[in-house]
Amino acid sequence: MAGSGNAHLREADDALLRVENLVVTYPTDAGVVHGVSDVSIDVRRGETLGLVGESGCGKSTLGRAMTMLREPTSGRVLFDGKDLTGLSREGLRRLRPRLQVIFQDPASSLNPRRTVRKIIAEGLEIWGRKPTPEVVDEMISAVGLDPAVVGERRPGQMSGGQCQRVAIARALMLKPDLILCDEPVSSLDVSIQAQILNLLERLRVDYGLTLIFIAHDLAVVKNISDRIAVMYLGKLCEVAPSGDLHRYPAHPYTRALIDAVPVADPEVEIVPMEIRGDLPSPINPPSGCRFRTRCPLATDLCAEREPEIREVRPGHYAACHYATTQPLPADAPTAEPVTV
């Protein structure tokens, strides 16, 4: 299987969340969509895992299956050592406060008819622990909004950035262990995107959160993550420490994602992109390595055999027959330690 294997998994005891051999397929009129195909990944407590790839690569589906928002077709989801795939609906519901989600489009993920205070308090109310008005307003302040100004507003009366802050406050109210952030900044202006990234980073430290952060822009993912997993058409291509990935990308797809990030310097010459075209259909994915149809390095071998994920340097894994495996240059900095 291309892009499969579990070499990149760490000690099970260290992981807050660990998924093994996760598969998500869903039937459509056109055929079975292979959303996630045999993916294993783990997140340590206090760590931010970035999932990056193009639209349709399965990163959102993986994120949702990792947090049991979507039942995986097969595979295991271990949260704090416990397999969630066997849990009843009620068991999952009881676990939900610990696993929260923030979505891409905050305007549609917030109830348009409720006020900000009501939206933020609702999660705890469901559990019979109605928060005091002071606690709610404190949380509104914690996400950088003025409760006196926005407290009684409804989502339609606020900007996208403000709605996203409310969605973050709503998730935080339940004191979660882990928050899945599914493209939370992709539809925002760069200035508002930066505000939200700064906010998430501060809250992660203040509240001791573990984050899974999904985006298509590698520079955004790099800013917030400790470890990054690059996904392509339902498979992992590369898993590496965040500080390592862009300097020493081993997979040709990662290199393409790096080339695609616009450089804010007119003196830097724009290098030609190595890949062209769109993602192939996940209904009928290419044989062997799924990236081979757009890969500048592809050979017959890539069509015949799926590359297994393997360690290309300490802590850095790639699933490519032709992965760059040269040792790091002598002056290369070592991977940044994970800050918990």
């Binding site: 990234l197 980073e201 822009d217 790099k222 917030i224």
Partner: peptide
């Protein structure tokens, strides 16, 4: 300058604070 500071850059270490302008 603040718009430039808002851009996350690949060269910067992870968890760098972005110099975003406040408000809108």
């Amino acid at each position: 300058s603040a718009l430039l500071g808002s851009l996350p850059r690949l060269e910067d270490p992870p968890h760098s604070t972005l110099a975003a302008p406040p408000g809108r």
